[in-house]
Design a protein around this nucleic acid. Sequence first.
DNA 1: GGACTGACCAACC
DNA 2: AGGTTGGCCAGTC
Length: 114
Amino acid sequence: MEKTRSGFFQQVYRLVSTIPEGKVMTYGQIARMLGGRYSARLVGFAMSSCPVHLPAHRVINRKGEMAGGLIFGGAEAQRALLVAEGVPFLMDGRVDLARARHTPSQNANSFCSG
DNA sequence: GGACTGACCAACC
DNA sequence: AGGTTGGCCAGTC
């Protein structure tokens, strides 16, 4: 009955929903943290679905770029949201994963018990 | 009911 | 050092 077992997507949504402001996560990191390195594709696809109001704008690719979620209105809007939250960017216009990368304490269930 | 598609990443050579 | 391929899950026609 654990939602976490309902599906890989649920795990992604759960993890993404725990990303604080001013922080971002990469598909690979989420995928690897969930178990598979090849699952990155699912993470990206999970965002594409965006069935719920998830901070998908805080999820970007490995290079720090954004796919321009068709849900936000475009990569520009996507980046605007991150900038508004205070996410550090590089001169190239990419997210500074070096500082914006969010690293959960291997336990993103901080709200699970709550 | 079956096959294709879809915001990617990392190992292999 | 770079180019190519494999792989995961869910939704849709």
